[in-house]
Design a binder for these strands. Structure first.
Length: 408
RNA sequence: GGGAAGAUGGCUGAGCGGUCAAAAGCAACAGACUGUAAAUCUGUCGACAUAUGUCUACGUAGGUUCAAAUCCUGCUCUUCCCA
């Protein structure tokens, strides 16, 4: 089914190929022809398992952004219904989420999408939630509609399902249904919006291609699936962690400064790939930055961090984060985006201060002091009995090299 | 419906009456070296407490015992096998 990539004629696929977004496609040649005409509609779906997207989700989202840029219409699907089922991509069944959690998460997901995709103007994007069409669905009807044309034999050969079975791990009937729901989504979106392209992460391939057959049978039309590569760090670690937390897209989950810092601190080996993926810089500019080696590569990382933050949080937040980083790390000052903590009394013990400022336990702070990880201003704190007086002007309290709070 | 196994700290997973806040690995955090990178080495990794102390924790509710993650009973959930 998957073909080797031809020389693309459509702008969209040319750009995607140049930036390394293309992983697998049901029919590259056909899709290229399809996208040669503007005004096509494609969808990307994500289940609301958390109340924000994180950087790991961003690759296909950026594809949707480019898609829109080249005159096509993106549909962003929130899997309010499929979240009730749980994609069997893990080794075990997901814990059931309550309806309230799912709804709250859906709202967060929508806010994440809105940062990257335009929902007004020409070829405005559309946001849909599959809960809309599944919530009142009649089981008997669905079974007859989908069940008759679904081969269990085929379902069992799907990668993730096969893996479970091969490893003798439990697979519930609920989970087995997941691919049917995803296929049905595709059909529904075709009927409503004439959407005949699905874009998704490469791990969704098996779930997605089922929709192609369904559209052919039920709607007598050719449909396409295009997958994005999964971005992995060179050491095989998963992407998307920042200071032990997920690198969230939504502002209320991660400050813009921390978002900037996430990109500022990426592995050298990832810089080029991330510039291509997470920024809209021209390819020539990326080629120039990619040549930087040694300590000079920090320049490329600054550009990456700025551009990536700009897309997600806006140019003001990006500027502010960049300035804060510059001031804090290069000039030894205190940048505006550094969180602040005001000492509640005239003086306070260093342990209480650091515990409150960093939101850690006192024991944790004592350990950190013993390890020499805490410093106030330029002075390393040597023991945990130090008493700190309220400073005349703000002083920087550091936990390790990167966690910093301005003490007032 | 019958039978068997299991539920341990962020995850994997040992422990199977005291020496258990619980091995080991992973993840994470910190230190050294550096470039706000990687690799490497070192340390930390339930909470509280100015060390050896207290509290909370091994699905849940009880019980046996001087003493339980470890034994017994009920409950909840999960898996596997047979029908």
């Amino acid at each position: 089914m998957t073909q080797t990539k031809p020389k693309f004629k459509s702008e969209f696929l040319r750009e995607m190929e140049a930036r390394g977004f293309l992983n697998q496609c049901s029919d590259f040649e056909g899709l290229d022809k399809h996208f040669a005409t503007p005004g096509r509609t494609a969808y990307l779906g994500c289940d609301p398992t958390a109340d924000s997207l994180h950087i790991g989700h961003l690759v296909p989202v950026m594809m949707m952004r480019w898609l829109q840029k080249f005159g096509h219409r993106p549909i962003l699907l929130v899997g309010g219904a499929t979240a009730h089922i749980g994609d069997p991509d893990k080794d075990e069944e997901r814990p059931m989420m309550t309806l309230e959690t799912i709804q709250k998460n859906s709202e967060g997901l929508k806010r994440s999408y809105e940062k990257f995709i335009r929902f007004a103007g020409d070829n405005a994007a559309v946001m849909v939630d599959n809960y809309e069409w599944f919530k009142d669905m009649n089981y008997l009807w669905f079974l007859r509609e989908m069940g008759t044309i679904t081969s269990v034999n085929k379902l069992l050969t799907l990668d993730r399902i096969k893996r479970r079975l091969d490893a003798d791990l439990h697979l519930s009937f609920l989970e087995l249904n997941y691919p049917l729901f995803q296929s049905y989504d595709f059909l529904e979106l075709y009927k409503k919006y004439n959407c005949d392209v699905q874009i998704c992460g490469s791990d969704q391939w098996g779930n997605a291609i089922g929709g192609i057959d369904l559209l052919r049978r039920k709607a007598n039309t050719d449909a396409f699936v295009l997958t994005a590569p999964i971005l992995a760090a060179p050491n095989g670690k998963k992407m998307g962690k920042s200071e032990g937390n997920a690198a969230w897209i939504n502002d209320d989950k991660l400050s813009s400064y921390d978002y900037y810092q996430y990109f500022r601190n990426v592995d050298d080996a990832m810089v080029e790939k991330m510039l291509l993926t997470f920024t809209e810089l021209p390819l020539a500019e990326i080629a120039r930055l990619e040549k930087l080696r040694g300590a000079d590569i920090n320049e490329a990382k600054k550009v990456l961090a700025f551009e990536a933050t700009k897309l997600c949080r806006g140019v003001d937040a990006a500027n502010s984060a960049a300035t804060t980083a510059q001031t804090t790390f290069e000039s030894g000052g205190i940048g505006a985006d550094i969180p602040e903590y005001t000492i509640p009394a005239e003086e306070i013990s260093i342990v209480d201060l650091a515990a409150a400022a960093f939101g850690e336990s006192k024991s944790e702070i004592r350990r950190a002091i013993a390890a020499g990880a805490i410093s106030l201003g330029d002075t390393k704190i040597e023991n945990d009995k130090v008493i700190v007086a309220r400073p005349v002007r703000p002083v920087l309290l550091s936990f390790g090299k990167k966690k910093k709070v301005a003490i007032k």
